[in-house]
Amino acid sequence: MSAGSSAPEKAVLCWLATVDADNRPNVSPKEIYAQTGADRLVIADIASARSVRNIRANPAVCVSLIDVFLQRGRKLEGQAEIIAPDHPGFTELAAPLVAMTGGKFPIRHVISLHIARTTPILAPSYRHTPDRSVADLQADAYQTYGVQPIQK
């Protein structure tokens, strides 16, 4: 996960699920996000007009963070708030996001999720092959994606 996380997994993208005023769902990837406390995740609105519009109509959201190589992650549920640049807390909430972008992308708003519930996400292989180690499952994922881990 991005800056500020204590999670063992390393999610590169998170997936933000919202619902519009007509109850039509929308899921979109977000790559600039940070957990800034036990109960808050902030996401940069760089090109998220639909997500922002949906949250203004219905603030209930769900975010999935998955490490594709470990095939596990977390689902975060709660209420989101759109923080505009003129909001008194914008600079503080945007700081970890600005640090991640290096100023390369304008952050139009901060989507601030107040996390009400966190649930683990596990690939079915964790449940259906409990005798296999995490290392074996991870090796399978590397093979599936045709990549090798970086040796440090």
Rank of each mutant, 00 (worst) to 15 (best):
S2R: 15
S2N: 15
A3K: 15
G4I: 09
G4K: 10
G4Q: 09
S5W: 08
S6K: 15
A7S: 14
A7T: 10
L13E: 10
W15M: 11
L16N: 04
T18S: 05
V19Q: 01
D20L: 04
D20H: 04
D22E: 11
N23Q: 12
N23S: 12
R24E: 05
R24F: 06
P25S: 09
N26L: 11
S28D: 04
P29Q: 11
K30I: 11
E31C: 12
T36H: 05
A38P: 00
D39F: 00
R40H: 14
L41Y: 00
L41V: 15
L41F: 03
V42H: 00
V42T: 06
A49W: 05
S51M: 04
R53G: 03
R53F: 00
R53Q: 03
I55K: 01
I55V: 05
R56A: 01
A57P: 00
N58G: 04
N58K: 06
N58R: 08
P59W: 01
A60N: 09
V63W: 08
D67F: 02
V68K: 13
V68W: 10
L70A: 14
L70C: 06
L70G: 09
Q71W: 14
Q71E: 15
Q71T: 13
G73N: 02
R74Q: 09
K75Y: 00
G78T: 01
G78C: 00
Q79D: 08
I82Y: 07
I82K: 09
I82Q: 07
I82P: 00
I83C: 09
I83W: 06
I83T: 04
A84I: 10
A84R: 13
A84F: 03
P85L: 02
D86K: 07
H87R: 08
H87L: 03
F90K: 05
L93T: 05
L93E: 02
A94C: 14
A95P: 06
A99S: 14
M100E: 15
G103L: 07
K104H: 10
F105C: 06
P106Q: 12
V110W: 04
V110L: 11
S112L: 15
S112Q: 12
L113F: 06
L113M: 06
H114A: 14
I115G: 01
A116D: 14
T119P: 03
P120C: 03
I121D: 01
L122R: 13
L122M: 13
A123F: 04
P124L: 13
Y126D: 01
Y126K: 02
R127T: 12
T129N: 09
T129C: 07
D131H: 00
D131W: 01
D131T: 00
D131L: 00
R132M: 08
A135M: 09
L137V: 07
L137K: 11
A139W: 07
D140G: 12
D140R: 12
A141H: 12
A141D: 08
A141L: 13
Q143R: 15
G146D: 08
V147N: 12
V147R: 14
Q148C: 07
Q148V: 12
P149N: 10
P149W: 12
P149A: 13
I150C: 05
I150E: 14
K152M: 07
K152C: 02
